[in-house]
Nucleic acid binder design. Structure first.
Lengths: 388, 388
DNA sequence: TTGAAAGCGCTACCAG
DNA sequence: CTGGTAGCGCTTTCAA
């Protein structure tokens, strides 16, 4: 491995001069600098990042820590951040935190915060407090913070407005019995049961539980549920104990199973259908559902697959809209209408905030909360017969 | 940031002793070690990776460099490697190399080889020679090398046997006019034209061009094309100038367009159909195609989407099989039959090779070439009426 | 405008 | 078994 000393010697200057010249410091005379650059090229010199990092405290690398690498949304997000960082001359390294939930903390502590000048982090199980400690003073930008007033700059996905737009869209295309999948909604209580469930599936005044919840929580699913409520309220549509169907895990397989059960309910095989999921009490599901909003595109694709398993046609029998805008939804059959988070915008904001913190470590400015843009992308899964 | 000196002081020992104790060196007395560990815990000490790396030359982190982060196959592969590395107590960082082709080299040089003890690299544009220089002496394991005799340990996807199994399967389910999408096959010449194309789509003796090609090239598509040829030969099925349909870019959008054009050809709107793709001369496509093998699942999903756009039903009108085994294919409609590369096996082999090189840098053993396992997963896209 | 020298935090060699 | 100590390669004062 060729070191800076060798370059300096080859160029006939001192190590210090070489260091300045290589980073383009103006205090070095142009021709001296050129000599050093030539020598470096000649020897194929590359700066040792560990040494640089150790000495100066930064190395031009930022970290991205996401839950899972092999899911479409996080991986598209990481790719977008990576591309954005490149525009600023930064390198990006990505880490998945999920491998073992217990070790999530250790992973962050050990690598992401140490190898990088700062990190963009999508938290799942760790609190702000813990993150602060893990980061070791390095700048952090959160993606979808878990609390309303996070300790770090935060870029949120457009949960409230996006979800509202999703329900608006379903109503616009004629849906009147809408099911929301992946969120407990205002009726879900902390013990996992559903408020008013005993009320025999009738309309139920949700004002109290709704307010109680939305003032405390800030999880992605709660914020999206809140957006749904806004839309329902504006359209004067009542919600019932079967409007929201929570899912213990947001994965495609579970969604497919839910899709199948909804299909059977729609086909009336069982008059009092309830959806069963592992680790959750059975939940009632409306028999006359004509529109479904899923918390993520992945859930939507799974549900659509489950509906197809049982011969229910989307969009003819029921319309489906997702959230995220993963590219998979463009090529699925039917293609998926979705609230597409603008990942380019999200990445731009996240990198910009992080850079500001890296470059002005002592600015002392308050954490900023930014919401990324979104776009409603209408595709086949909510087509109406006349609209095509 | 708390340093080792502080831990040592708190524990009442020297820095050296602290260093040994923290890494569990047996020469330190158990109770001394415990004292140090307690102090470290107390102070929330974390080792500085840059310093460790600078001094000892390794830090327990391995790098994975893939082309694109936001495509299913590479991201699933990275996730698998990441999980495998964890089992060995290693951390993994992932980088995408594609941001700009020009910068691919710079990225490798600057980060992946410097921040890590070694790297697993899926090459796209750089030669072995270049990689060797970029790696700066760090161990490298290649995924799907570009040459037959690479300079590094290499884990290959099961191209030949997998592709052969794919064609075998299509033939088994009754296909007689098979189209291979994404590879030029033996007839594609270095100038991009097709040998024997003037022969009016008739059967054409491909022995010469086939041998000429397969003895030189080792790209993934060539190796998969070779597997196809084996199967065709064994079944006595002739190949024609329209058996192989190359694609300039393996992306879903281009595949969808190809799918549409094939659909139109099948529907006989144009008696002499040719598939047009940007940057490529129009290629003939068989009108009576009844089975399609795509070089990747992503292409297959795009093609199926294109066929669906034009009302062609899979598997009724034509059967489709892909390659890779991405999870998307399990939930697509129809679900996709595929040659699924065993990513667990691939990851295990890759990490194991890399670890051996890291731990025995001077073993001098020859580069090893390993082929990962695969599995044929039969799903709806090749279902026959009787088989379900 | 350049050079000398002092470390960044850690590991690994020795000596005790 | 433990402690002193010399750097890993670089950046960054401070002098010249």
């Amino acid at each position: 491995m060729v070191t800076m000393s060798e370059v300096a010697k080859a160029a006939g200057v001192s190590r210090a001069t070489a260091s300045y010249a290589l980073r383009g410091d103006p205090r070095i005379a142009p021709d001296t600098a050129q000599k050093v650059l030539n020598a470096a090229n000649e020897l194929k010199y590359t700066a040792n990042l560990s040494a640089r990092s150790l000495r100066s405290g930064h190395n031009g690398v930022i970290g991205v820590a996401i839950f899972e690498l092999d899911r479409p949304y996080p991986s598209e997000m990481s790719a977008a951040i990576s591309r954005e960082a490149t525009k600023h001359g930064l390198q990006t390294i990505v880490q998945q935190t999920s491998i073992s939930k217990d070790s999530e903390i250790g992973i962050l502590k050990k690598v992401t915060s140490q190898l990088c000048d700062g990190m963009i982090f999508s938290p799942s199980n760790v609190s702000d407090q813990e993150i602060r400690i893990l980061a070791g003073g390095k700048p952090i930008v959160l993606l979808d913070a878990l609390s309303h007033s996070p300790m770090f700059d935060t870029i949120n996905t457009p949960c409230e407005t996006g979800a509202q737009a999703a329900i608006d869209h379903l109503i616009n295309v004629g849906c009147r019995n809408i099911l929301v999948i992946g969120a407990g909604g205002p009726l879900e209580q902390t013990d996992g049961t559903i408020a008013g469930e005993h009320q025999d599936d009738a309309t139920y005044d949700v004002t109290q539980p709704m307010l109680a919840k939305t003032s405390q929580d800030a999880s992605v699913s709660d914020r999206r549920a809140y957006g749904c409520l806004q839309s329902f309220a504006e359209h004067g549509m009542p919600i019932t104990t079967s409007t929201f169907l929570p899912m213990p895990r947001w994965d495609e397989d579970a969604a497919r199973s839910v899709g199948r059960q909804i299909a059977r309910a729609m086909q009336g095989e069982d008059a009092t259908s309830r959806v069963k999921q592992p680790g959750m009490a059975p939940r009632p599901v409306p028999h006359d559902v004509d529109g479904i909003f899923c918390m993520t595109d992945t859930i939507a694709l799974g549900v659509m697959r489950g509906l197809a398993d049982c011969g229910v046609n989307v969009p003819r029998d029921v319309k489906v809209i997702g959230f995220d805008g993963i590219s998979e939804g463009e090529y699925s059959i039917p293609s998926l209408t979705t609230i597409s988070t603008d990942l380019g915008d999200l990445a731009k904001q996240a990198v910009s905030q992080l850079l500001d913190r890296i470059n002005n470590p002592d600015s002392g400015r308050e954490p900023e909360i930014i919401t990324a843009r979104y776009q409603l992308i209408e595709r086949e899964s909510t087509n109406t017969p006349t609209s095509k």
